[in-house]
């Protein structure tokens, strides 16, 4: 064997290695860099605002041009259907049309030019709206995985119990027959909203919903006891003290949300536990949190070591309201 040729293609060529290079070269990487999320560094906020205005203006201009209100859907496996038509190879999903997969079928949708949604078996969803500045589907049941490269709050998934708001990310969303949902963030951030209540869900975290109730986000690696206590708090009116008793430093994500959700009589306890895990930054006081001061709540978020809340608030202010 020619070690020199194997090492750097110098010296006498080795016919077997040459043959393998020729055969295997077809699998070589040929991709392009990803479209990077428009996460703007805190110190460049003015630039971010200018860019966001440009995006909004461009989106409005594109909307006036009337982009095709359909998404392409590719067959992945089995026999998914658009309306009553079985997909053969690929199809178009128009506004108001339903896409349905059976027990052994899967499909993949291009979300205009901003991303992709993979549709798992036993899923039923409808394209409600596709515009340059807003793309919205309704997931009635089943499972999807979405990968979106677009400004935050451009892609929305309505479910029977809450609305998932894309913040530039990859995530999966499951909805069962009763309308209960589970959102799992694989990369980036997702917001989950229901009747004015918001959950910010970072990478590695999940959030459950039930019809009429939005759950509290938690990290996937939290303890079973913590998750069980949180489930009882969210959906069975369980005591917040059980949740607090099981919380670790990393579960401050959950506790931060509970500051705005616990009963008035329990906020003080949430504050005390949260302060033990993540000391409140200057400007955040117990009295302020007891009256659910929004500014203090945001300040404390920044102390969690997650992304600065500014960028999320900023994008939100420029986007259309959730319907």
């Amino acid at each position: 064997m020619s070690d020199r040729y194997l090492w750097n293609k110098s010296g006498e060529p080795d016919p077997e290695i040459e043959r393998l290079e020729r055969l295997l070269g077809r699998f070589q990487h040929r991709g392009a860099p990803p479209l990077l999320p428009r996460r703007i560094p805190f110190r460049h906020r003015q630039l971010a605002i200018a860019a966001s205005i440009l995006v909004t203006v461009s989106a409005a201009w594109l909307a006036t041009r009337g982009p095709r209100p359909e998404w392409s859907v590719a067959l992945v496996e089995g026999a998914p259907r658009v309306g009553s038509r079985a997909i053969v190879g690929s199809a178009w999903l128009g506004e108001g049309e339903w896409l349905e997969t059976g027990a052994a079928s899967r499909a993949s949708m291009r979300v205009a030019s901003i991303g992709q949604v993979d549709v798992e078996p036993n899923t039923r969803l409808r394209l409600d709206k596709t515009r340059a500045d807003e793309h919205r589907i309704r997931l009635e049941r089943g499972s999807i995985t979405a990968m979106i490269y677009a400004p935050a709050r451009t892609f929305f998934v309505n479910t029977p119990s809450a609305t998932a708001v894309d913040l530039g990310c990859r995530y999966s969303l499951d909805v069962d027959e009763q309308g209960a949902g589970l959102l799992r963030v694989i990369l980036g951030w997702v917001g989950f909203e229901h009747r004015g209540l918001e959950s910010f869900i970072p990478e590695g975290a999940l959030c459950a919903t039930r019809p009429g109730r939005l759950g509290t986000p938690y990290y996937e690696d939290s303890s079973e006891a913590f998750r069980a206590a949180l489930r009882r708090f969210d959906f069975e009116q369980g005591p917040v003290t059980e949740v607090l008793a099981e919380a670790r430093r990393r579960d401050a994500l959950t506790l931060w949300h509970l500051l705005m959700r616990a009963e008035p009589s329990g906020i003080g306890r949430v504050y005390d536990k949260m302060a033990e895990l993540v000391p409140p930054p200057p400007g955040v006081t117990r009295e302020g949190m007891l009256r659910r001061d929004k500014r203090m709540h945001d300040l404390w978020w920044d102390a969690l070591g997650l992304e600065n809340i500014e960028w999320w608030r900023k994008w939100k202010g420029l986007a259309p309201p959730v319907k």
């Binding site: 699998f27 990487h29 860099p33 990803p34 999320p37 990968m147 990859r170 694989i186 990369l187 980036g188």
Partner: peptide, 23 residues
């Protein structure tokens, strides 16, 4: 990635990895 995951998943995961790195 090609050494570890199904070939059809590789391109998506390359994108994932670089997005993760960027963040």
């Amino acid at each position: 990635l090609l050494a570890r995951v199904p070939r059809e998943a590789v391109d998506d995961l390359v994108q994932d990895v670089f997005l993760m790195v960027y963040r």
